[in-house]
Write a protein that binds this DNA or RNA. Structure first.
Lengths: 250, 250
DNA sequence: TATTATTGTGTTTATTGTACACATTGAATC
DNA sequence: GATTCAATGTGTACAATAAACACAATAATA
């Protein structure tokens, strides 16, 4: 059994089990690893089934809907965000991937092949919404993710791997950080994604040499110690650099 | 309508149209871009529908079969090879992707979402076999691919892009070249995949510095001009280097 | 035997990456 | 208000890598 997004076309949950395949493609689902960055940590948004395990937000594809649109719809339902960075990264097609599933006669009890997406969101803008199958929707530090249903842990790890890979030529920083951020924050983002530490001074030199950052006059106050400058991305130069193949990674 | 691999479980083609969904998952297909390297050119293996357009080899997923297994089965049927390098690279999920398709009542006339794989094969080992829907199965230079059915041209281009990307950390050379090859041949392979020319001397230096090549005593005779040395990959060191994150690309 | 196009093997220079040092600053402490 | 502390801002020296380039050797052809 799986979670769905909007059930408004159905009169009841039972109706959804009975007639779901009239609306959705059978045997196919979309699962999303939604990444955010908060308090210098990479986080992932998880759902908790009523009385059950945690899982990645997911849903199904309508009969005449593109897979990308389905993923956007699902993400919008879970986060409230319409404008987020979304990337398909892998298909999970092992017939035994849904270990705990009991073979029910419903369409939803059958085997599902899942198309994996990862999303990058600005943490502070997200309003987590549980779906009808869930009792909670919360952020988890990626190092503290609990046991997940089915192969969702593997999906999440693969998403993280894809993210690490994409750091070079996809707008990761731009989509995870707030408008204004400090150099140390940007560095922590890289470090948490790559899982390694980077020399502070070399990092700054490297980032500035790309000419995609604008240093503001402001500094970030409040913290102890010396107040760091605030930066923002020069979005035009950033996207141009990506198109021209500049490596934004480490 | 699409091409299938083995139809041995069906009594006739009509039977396949009528009962295919009892064997295969509906709405799902696998398409493969099979790459080979011959006469210093990267090539792709295409099928020609009886009386129709050219297309990528493809097939369907059995109800209890993993997607990877399905792809291997399809490839084996088309090339005769059981042991080839295969990698899933993208899902094509636009409901309008099958432009020329007429909506027939059969399962096969419905919308299909296609999972794209690319394969790397040693050209000389392949015995191309048309399937039951095809009249021809031939290699094409990737710069001379004719118009393809549906979105298969886009799938092929995306496969090529994925291959270019994977050149760094996947065993591309090992799987595309014959056991023995010359340094110029290896270089042409890189150049044809990357679409750019590389300095001969720097290329050789770079490749040798990786310590994954064994130079044989033999030289390749027959050609005009100076006879080049033959090399082979040190498979153990090659795979070790990949696992350790050595960049084999350019 | 001379020619030609290609291969084998360097060297030099420029660019990039790595390691490390020291001064500055803002809050907290005495 | 001076001192301490932990973090930030800036810079320099060295190593490793990449790019540009030169010349000798060789196998078929003329």
């Amino acid at each position: 059994m799986r979670k769905s997004g909007s059930t408004e076309v159905f009169t009841s949950l039972d109706d959804f089990y009975q007639r779901g395949d009239q609306v959705y493609l059978p045997h196919l689902s979309v699962d999303c690893a939604i990444f955010g960055f908060h308090e210098n940590q990479l986080r992932v948004l998880l759902l908790k089934w009523k009385g059950g395990k945690w899982c990645l937000p997911g849903g199904f594809i309508k009969h005449k809907e593109s897979v990308d649109t389905a993923a956007h719809r699902i993400l919008q339902e879970r986060t409230g965000l319409t404008d987020l960075y979304l990337k398909q990264f892998y298909v999970f097609g092992d017939p035994k991937r849904e270990k705990e599933k009991k073979n029910s006669p419903h369409w939803i009890g059958k085997r599902f092949i899942s198309i994996g997406y990862y999303a990058l969101v600005e943490f502070s803008k997200v309003q987590p919404h549980p779906d009808v199958f869930s009792e909670a929707c919360e952020w988890f530090d990626i190092d503290e993710v609990p046991g997940l249903i089915y192969d969702h842990k593997a999906i999440m790890m693969k998403a993280l791997e894809a993210l690490r890979f994409d750091l070079n030529d996809h707008p990761v920083g731009l989509n995870l950080l707030p408008k204004k951020f400090t150099m140390p924050e940007l560095q922590r983002l890289y470090e948490t994604i790559l899982g390694e530490s980077i020399d502070r001074r070399n990092f700054q030199k490297h980032m500035l040499s790309m000419d995609i950052l604008i240093r503001l006059e402001e500094r970030k106050t409040g913290g102890a110690h010396k107040a760091p400058y605030l930066y923002q991305f020069d979005k035009r130069k950033y996207m141009l650099a990506l198109r021209q193949g500049l490596k934004l990674g480490w």
